[in-house]
Design a protein around this nucleic acid. Sequence first.
DNA 1: CGCTAGGAGTCCGTCCGGTTCGA
DNA 2: CTCGAACCGGACGGACTCCTAGC
Length: 903
Amino acid sequence: MSSSDDDVPLAGSKKPNGHVIKSSSKISKSQDKAMDDAQQPVNGAAGISVRNGPVEEMEIDEPQTNGNASSKRKARTSTGKSYKEATSDSEDDAPLSKKRRVSKSLKPDLESDSDDAPLVSKKRNSKSPVVAKKPVKASETAIGEADDSDAPLGTKLAKEKQRIEKKAAKDAKEIRKEERKKNENKPQTNGAAAKRKSLTNGVKKEDSDDDKPLSSKIKSAKKPEKSVKREASTPKKSKVKKEETAEDEEAEEEEEEYKWWEDPTKGDGTKKWTTLEHAGVVFPPPYQPLPKNVKMRYDGQPVSMAPESEEVATFFGSMLNSTHNVENPTFIKNFFEDFTKSLKETGGATDRDGNKVAIKDFKKCDFQAIFDYFDAQRMEKKALPQSEKKRLKAEKDEAEAPYLYCKWDGRKQKVGNFRVEPPGLFRGRGEHPKTGHVKKRVKPEQITINIGKEAMVPHPPEGHRWKEIKHDPEGTWLAMWQENINGAYKYVMLAANSDVKGQSDFNKFEKARELKKHIDHIRDHYEKELKDELMANRQRATAMYLIDRFALRAGNEKGDDEADTVGCCSLKFEHVTLRPPNTVIFDFLGKDSIRFYDEVEVTAQVFKNLKLFKKSPKAEGDDIFDRLTTGQLNKHLSNFMKGLTAKVFRTYNASFTMSTLLREMKSVGTIPEKIKDYNEANRKVAILCNHKRTVTAGHETQMEKLGDRIKGVKYQKWRQKQMILDIDPKQKKKRGEAFFELDDDLDQGWIQEHQAYLVEEQRTKIEKKFAKDNEKLVAEGSKEMKHKELEQRLEVADELAKKYKLENKRGKVDAEGKGPTVEKFLANIEKMEQRIATMSIQAEDKESNKEVALGTSKINYIDPRLTVVFSKKFDVPIEKFFSKTLREKFDWAIKSVGEDWEF
DNA sequence: CGCTAGGAGTCCGTCCGGTTCGA
DNA sequence: CTCGAACCGGACGGACTCCTAGC
């Protein structure tokens, strides 16, 4: 192969540290072994062909400069130039950032087989190497393509089969439905079990072919068909067929739900709909100028300005209570920049006499009046009578009603976010460089509408027009615009409980399940590649290991104008610490600037690799995986399985973990206990995915409160026990002394405090009641009670205090209540114990959940069918796990599995 | 016993962040 | 490849719900 033979030794280029760059593209054995000494270039045989084609040129000790990470991007775009720079001997003199570019930009070439030839010649030759390689690549891709095309066809055929089967099973379903309806009317709690049973039975009896075995059906259908497939319908044809069936379905009465999960139309299909009608978007209300007397002050003087600028001022002024933003220098800087710009565009500010006021210094701006005004408005709104609030809401609902739903292929579907985002100040998360910038009001002229050809196009607001009308059946969005801060696209799409979204959710989990079949092979493969001679391959394998084992995200490159966060491929030198023999410590800010911190053990090879990837001259700011991008990684992954990408591993591992935990779980006991079991498994998944949340402000106090409540019950329990002794001292022997002892976590000090608290509680209660009663009396026109009355009433509390005092002194508790019996006390104790148990479980749950967010994994990563299985297997109503909206979102899961389903 | 207030806890919309894919 | 486009995923906080104590 190519190249490397012609290489001119890279002699010219020196590493920053003075090492001569080696031309070897591989990691030699000796290097591998003596990783630590790897600085010595080993000249690997040049033309060893590597799998996937191109021989990569890598050097283990590839020069890595300490360039600033952010320069990377630019580097990639200036390849040509960089080459030259790279070749030039003067590299040493190049600024660090340039050097960095060199290493980066070398990458593509190297991978495409260039060798150490001087860059210039490389460039010229670049074609030939590619060509040379092509055969290899071509054959591989050919295989890949063949596979690809097979798969869709196969699944399509399978789908057809399913469709037929589905029809057959339809009657059965009708019956089930009926049953369900009947059951639905039964009272929830007790009915739940019965309901479940009848459902399950229904499934078993009538549907067994259809439900559980669905997946196996697909499988079985697929295989036989494969051979036939080739001549089978073209994608288009099958699509048409699908549509037809879909239309058939539509014909049915509204009540009939369309069970798309038994008729997956999505396939790889790109066409998402045939007909689409919707009402467009709702714009936020126009800006209401401030009343004349409310003004921002500049240098102490109230100033006036055009409404456009005034609105910007109100963005800031209305959030003065959010010190987090309002005191953030970047936020202020960006806001002020936009504010002054707006003033400039709208004629500036004037004082009360109409004289221009130049607003130049943020510190002289006083928004307090604006804040007060908004605050007052908030209060006013809050204080509105209930009925008025209701009326307003009803009004709003009515106005929005048309936008709430669309018609997608004739079916009514809920729209997710039909409201255009209102203007305001961009916040962003973490240390976002653009925080504080004005997010502008979106005009109809910026909005593109996507709608069916035949449908009526929604009218833009009076005097406006839409940017564009599209009829793109491959898009699932109804409207779209571009936001001004990051140029990001905003889409109006369907709600999570819609068919399309459900389908893609379903597909996501099916993909993850498919990964199950390939995972062993994939792991074997990367395990081997961890020792690959090619740096790029080795890095790729190592990244795969991390993604697979620790659920890291892919980690795309980010720009300077975004918060500085990373994922796997973008991990930097300082984010990974190696602690021999084999512990890796991750510490970085991930998505949403959430800290990822974990100390994990890895295999010796991975440890060694990471050490290699961190090797000098790499230093802070340098990429660990400098030879890897998410694009390459995903491309590689797709070779193993169609549609496999880095994020699938997260879904797979989350669901697989949950599945394993559930399979081994023997959940018994009360419903809360079972829920706790589920949550525990859920929590493990959440931890795996690093779904953290900030501990709520009041957590500590809340825990204390909870703890005190538990202790309080324990104390009362103890008192009950003492009362037993009071009426029947013989019980002491009978039950043993231990029974009557105080719980470990209670001591006299605490008890005294608690008693005081109880007394005080009584007191305040009495006082409150007294005050209230007095109010009442006054309202009725009578006279207030005398203070003496209060004192009299308070005697109850005093007596309580006395009683406790006496109890403490005598070390015994008098029996309370009428006709006290041992049995009664025992019954009370039993109840209290129950309460203690429940509360303790709650407390534990709460504590272990304080910094873990369960929701995200439950909603996005754990196959909802697993939750349904848990619910059925352990007889816990699904309502305990899925809220109403989630039940709608996961309708397909709830209806499609029995308790034996497996991920 | 039913009702209410109000506070805690959950739900859900919002809107920003990240990944993927193909032109 | 690189960027645009389109989607999925994520934390957060206001709105709503639920629970409980008190009447």
